[in-house]
Computed example of a mutant assay.
Amino acid sequence: MWITLLAMAVAVSLEPFRIGMTVLMVNRPRPLLQLTAFLAGGFTMGIAVGMVVLFVLRPAMGSGHFTLPRVQIVVGAVLLLNAVVVASGLLEKMRGRSPAGRVERYSGAVATRTRRLLDGRSLWTAGAVGLGIALPSVDYLAVLALIVASGAAAATQIGALVVFNVVAFALVEIPLIAYLVAPGRTRSALAVVHDWLRTRRRRAVTVLLTVVGFVLLGAGVAGL
């Protein structure tokens, strides 16, 4: 469970949007407080949702069909399917069919909201963004299913949940610590990482999904 959990946590931590929001928080007024509020919001949502799901799903452990190998195989297959979709550029093609006027208006609205967010000082906004970014996604629900299906003790499952969130927010935690030592270098390094991921997003996401998918499939088949 642990290797799979850590691999998926690393994949989540490299989401371009998550890193982009970290860059934005660093460039807002009072960046240390902004990053702290952002991280606190993300942790609150991630841990709260995880605890609820873990204890709601725990009764399902008695089912013979809900086993770790089977969950790993299903999740691995879904991740590989997502990798094919990302590699084919299907999502970008679907977005490209939107009417030009609608896209332009939407882009303008996003730019306006982004400027407001960047210029704002409210820590509540940073916390709310953290809450929103940690809303349960397919990846997170898959991780929770793996934790529940592992059959580990409740304390171990809670520990796995905490470890996953710590690793998933690593690129928020590390800049928060680094900013205390070198604020300017931290901003520059984050901008470089964000630009690199943005320009190579399709390839990076495809590789991550493929690797994690095959790891899960292999672990699941070996455990049958």
Rank of each mutant, 00 (worst) to 15 (best):
P16E: 09
P183D: 09
L176T: 14
Q34A: 15
V74N: 12
A83L: 03
V148D: 01
I147Y: 01
G89Q: 08
G184R: 11
R203K: 01
V211P: 05
T44C: 14
Y140D: 11
A60I: 09
P29L: 10
L197E: 10
A149M: 10
R203V: 15
D195I: 01
A142T: 09
F17T: 13
G46A: 15
M61K: 09
R95H: 12
G132I: 13
L91W: 07
Y106E: 12
R97C: 13
S122M: 06
A145S: 15
A7S: 15
V215L: 15
L90F: 15
E104G: 04
T210A: 14
Y140R: 02
L80F: 03
V143D: 07
A191Y: 04
W196P: 01
V110I: 14
P69T: 09
L208I: 02
A149P: 06
H65L: 12
G130S: 00
L81W: 03
L57F: 02
R97M: 13
M61S: 07
V162Q: 04
P183R: 03
T199Y: 04
A168R: 00
A222K: 12
R201H: 13
I19Y: 00
T36G: 08
G108M: 02
R198Q: 14
G132R: 09
I177A: 15
P183L: 04
V129W: 00
A219C: 07
E104N: 01
P16Y: 07
F43Y: 08
A204P: 03
S188Q: 08
A37H: 05
L224I: 12
G20D: 10
L171E: 09
A219R: 05
